[in-house]
Amino acid sequence: MNAFAIAFNRTIRVGWRHPLDSLTPMAFFIIVVSLISITVEGVSDSENGIAIAVLWVVLLLSTMMASSGAFAQDYEDGSLEQLVAQNESLYVSVHGSVTARWFISSVPLLVLVPLGAWMLKLDIEVWWILFLTLIPGSIVFTLFGVLGATLTLGVGRNGVLLALLVLPLYIPVLLLGVGACQRSATEEPFQFALIGIYAIAMAAITFLPFAIAALLRVSQEY
């Protein structure tokens, strides 16, 4: 088995034994969407713009929450030490681990998006573009979330710090994603944003694991 499969397999297994790590962000997603639908007048009456923005922002926050625990357990129990000591291809392992994390944390949230869209009375025509942008968007959110988690490894109560580090980095994808969906809803051209969001996702997939692997090494080195 190669390093990708080994890391993927392990992360999925551990995730499977901790269903709350996936379920809590899902519950958070639904609760926040409900709160907004109840309190913000006109979310569901207005054109689709506000509803799209709400879905994106809430998905962003839930993903950040879900990825905040990445590598924390490995750091505590010494697995990370083994990973760094024995593994020649840490970059590939990080890829495996992050991919698994996307399946654990983002896919359940993406499954909830139609429910959220329905709660916000989003036109069904917008759904396809929503998914076309949310999939690469959630990949970028997960990668940056894991980056933030590795930056703060070993720092107790890292939740708020993580948010401060990661949220500014989310802005481009958020704007391009929301913009593409809103323009599609008003039948304006949105190809630019679509290309942009996929380009950012490709760049993030290629380069961020380097940074994450380097930080994992550093976390063991000092």
Partner: peptide, 17 residues
């Protein structure tokens, strides 16, 4: 083979895994 003070065993995985 390196066995550190923390043995690198995940609490939620089985001994065999």
């Amino acid at each position: 083979a390196y066995v550190g003070q923390k043995p690198g065993l995940n609490a939620s995985l089985t001994v065999f895994e």
